[in-house]
C-alpha cells in the first residue's frame, strides 16, 4: 500500500532530503505528507525536465533528491534526463507514476502511456523496477538504496 505518510517515511530511511515533483492524480494525494514533513523539502516545479535539473543541482550541492512525476512527464523530460544521468553521470532516482498500467494489462484502455513508458526507459538506459499492488514503500526504499549503493541512476514505476 502506497500512501503519503508511508512513502515519506520510506524515503527518509534512505536519506532523501528533497522531493522534486510535478504530481499526477495518484502521487498528488501525497502532497500534504511531503509538504507537512519538516525533514523533507518539497520542490514544486513547472515541467518534468526542470525537475531533473533541479535534482541535479541538489545532488551536485550535496543533497539527496528524488524526482516524482507521471510517465507523461518522463516523455517530456527526455533531454534533461539524458543530460543529467548520462553526460553528468549523476545517480538520480525517479518515482514515475504509470497512468493506466492496470487497465492496459487488462486490455481495458486505449491510453498509450503504458505502451511507451518501459521502452523509453530502456532506450534512455535507465534501470527500473515496477511497483504493483503487492509491493510496499519498503520496496521503493530498497530500489533507491540499491541504485545509490551502485552509484547509478534508477527508477521505480508506480503502477496506477
Amino acid at each position: 500500500m502506497f500512501d503519503g505518510p508511508s512513502v515519506a517515511a520510506a524515503l527518509k530511511t534512505c536519506g532523501v532530503t528533497h522531493v522534486v515533483w510535478v504530481p499526477d492524480s495518484v502521487l498528488g494525494q501525497w502532497d500534504s505528507a511531503f509538504s507537512g514533513d519538516p525533514d523533507l523539502a518539497l520542490i514544486r516545479v513547472c515541467r518534468e525536465g526542470e525537475a531533473v535539473a533541479v535534482a541535479g543541482g541538489l545532488y551536485l550541492g550535496g543533497r539527496r533528491p528524488i524526482v516524482l512525476m507521471q510517465c507523461t512527464g518522463l516523455f517530456e523530460a527526455g533531454d534533461s534526463l539524458r543530460n543529467f544521468i548520462h553526460d553528468l553521470k549523476l545517480p538520480l532516482f525517479f518515482l514515475i507514476g504509470v497512468r493506466s498500467y492496470f487497465a492496459h494489462q487488462q486490455g481495458a484502455t486505449t491510453d498509450t502511456c503504458p505502451v511507451f513508458t518501459e521502452p523509453i526507459l530502456k532506450a534512455w538506459g535507465l534501470s527500473y523496477v515496477v511497483l504493483e499492488r503487492r509491493h510496499s514503500p519498503a520496496d521503493l526504499a530498497a530500489a533507491y538504496r540499491d541504485a545509490q549503493a551502485e552509484r547509478r541512476a534508477g527508477a521505480a514505476l508506480l503502477a496506477e
Binding site: 528533497h18 522534486v20 523539502a41 520542490i43 516545479v45 525536465g49 526542470e50 525537475a51 531533473v52 535539473a53 533541479v54 535534482a55 541535479g56 543541482g57 541538489l58 545532488y59 551536485l60 550541492g61 550535496g62 543533497r63 533528491p65 533531454d79 534533461s80 539524458r82 543530460n83 543529467f84 553526460d87
Partner: peptide
Amino acid sequence: LPSSMGQGPALGLGLALAQ
C-alpha cells in the same frame, strides 16, 4: 556543457537550495 538547453536556471536553483 554538455547541457540540456534551458535547464541552467533549474540546475542553479538546485545548487542554491543545497548550499
